[in-house]
Every structure is written in C-alpha cells, then in structure tokens.
Design a protein around this nucleic acid. Sequence first.
DNA 1: GAAAAACTGATAAGCTTTATTAATTGGCAT
DNA 2: ATGCCAATTAATAAAGCTTATCAGTTTTTC
Lengths: 138, 138
Amino acid sequence: MDHLPNMRLTTQRQIILEELAKVTSHPTANEVYDMVRRRLPRIGLGTVYRNLELMADSGVILKIEVGGTQKRFDATIYPHYHIRCSACGKVDDIDIPVQLHINEAATAASSYEILGHHIEFSGVCQACQKKDKESAVN
Amino acid sequence: MDHLPNMRLTTQRQIILEELAKVTSHPTANEVYDMVRRRLPRIGLGTVYRNLELMADSGVILKIEVGGTQKRFDATIYPHYHIRCSACGKVDDIDIPVQLHINEAATAASSYEILGHHIEFSGVCQACQKKDKESAVN
DNA sequence: GAAAAACTGATAAGCTTTATTAATTGGCAT
DNA sequence: ATGCCAATTAATAAAGCTTATCAGTTTTTC
C-alpha cells in the first residue's frame, strides 16, 4: 500500500515474478519456491516469502487468501474471482462479471469504509468429479 | 458432510456451542478456547479444535476461512457474507442480499460442479478509521 | 454389568510464516 | 571506475496455528 522507496530489481525478484507469470495455477509460497529453485538453487525460502509479500503490497502481483491455510499468489492483477475445489484444494480463476454494485450495497449496510470484495466459489473440479464416480462404484 | 454415526452430546461440546452462540464476533479456535476455559478450566485446546471441526462438518456451526491465517467459527448458519478489517483483522457480518444468481453464472463459466460461494468484503472498521485520523495528525 | 465405541486431555509433531543476523549486492555519487 | 551505504540475501531460529497420537475415561449397547 505504501510508497516503495528504493526497491531494487534483484535477480531473485525478477525470477520469482517470471516464474509466477508462467503459470495460471495459484501457487503457494512454497510452490513458487520450488519453481524458482530450479533456476536459482541457492535461493532461500524466506526470500521468496519476503518478495511475494513485497510485490503484493506494491500491486505487482495479487495475494489470494482463500479457504485453506495457505496464502496463494497470482501474477494476474485485474479483478477476477476464484473457485476452489473442496476435494483437492486446487484454485482456478472463474470468469464471471465483476459485481461492482455490491460494494455500494455493502457501504449502505455497514459502518466500515469499504475497500473492495472478493468472491470465492467452492465446487468440485473435473478431476475430482471423476474420482468420486469411480469410488462410488465400489 | 458425511453421516455422523453416534455423535455424543458431551459437556465440552455443549459448552463450546453455547459460548460460540453468545458472541457475534467470529472467534478463532483459540478465542473459543479462552471463552470455554472460564467454565471448563481443564479442557484441552485439541478438544476445542476437534469439536469445532466436527460441528462445522455436521452443519451445526459455520467454519469461515477468510483472509488471514486463522480459521474462524460462527454459530449463525444461515447464508450471509462477511467483512474483514484490513487494519485489525476483525470480522463482522454484513447484511446484504445473498447473490443467488451468481452460482448460475459460475456454473456456466466453469467446468466445476458448483457447491456455493462466499463473499468477503475488505474495509476499515470504525475503530481503525479513528486511529487512522489520529495518527494522520502527527 | 461387560464389551465396544466415542471422547477427552496432555503432549508431541507438522506445517506455514515471520524474525534475526552476518554477509553480500545494487545503485548512486563521486 | 571506485567506494560507499542502504537494501537485500541466505541461513537459521523462532513463532504461530493446526493436526496427530495415545493412554485413560466416559458413554452407549447388548
């Protein structure tokens, strides 16, 4: 949120961003760490955490805090919603129109100063639907 | 989600539910633990976690997984949305109409089997708005 | 009333995230 | 180019939240 005074463009930062931009899954910090480590084997996990957090604060990437215990990150920063598989925990984008009007409804209904909203759908992904059918046969 | 074979109504379970029903905040497991411990000083934290999880699975209470790292619980189980203060992390209910239509939109837009959705607003609560103004004077 | 099942409390273990610190690096002004 | 200094890094420890384990207890069932 704040101004970022002298944010250096380090190798680590560049590669973290590049790797995150490669995928459309919404990796956790640890998953990003695994991806980046293939190119920078000596990078520390703390560096990945720190930079993901910094980049999210500066708006370069998106931090997604949905169901489940872990934070996830996304290089796609335009407003969009997510769906999370209740079976395997996978998170995908879901392409429905952004519901601008509900922020106004929220402003009217609450004493908070509204900053925004996020919608998270829950469902069962195709892979897990298949698994369910198979195990139902037993 | 599953059938719950012989779920006993233990003292611990009753008191956890009673204490949760007393508040409209959305306490974390640890906060529930603190509340319950005033009446059952020897209860274990694991028991609180286990029972909150069980009751959420059986639909008696609601498990809320919003921004922030901790799970929160709510004795109010009718569908409603939440707002989270980005400054202090407090979670409140927000009373706007449930957006039934977006589940259909999601079904059309995705290969997932849609189970439901949740909307989380982010904002600044009144207490934190005051604090902001005070510190802005400095 | 005995056997089976569910549950508890205590504790340990697991996993994610944050903090600490000495060493290194990138950017800027000489 | 060179040197300086703040920002950054890697490594590690520490912290925080949640889940697993298990012996002992309570409840149910027959």
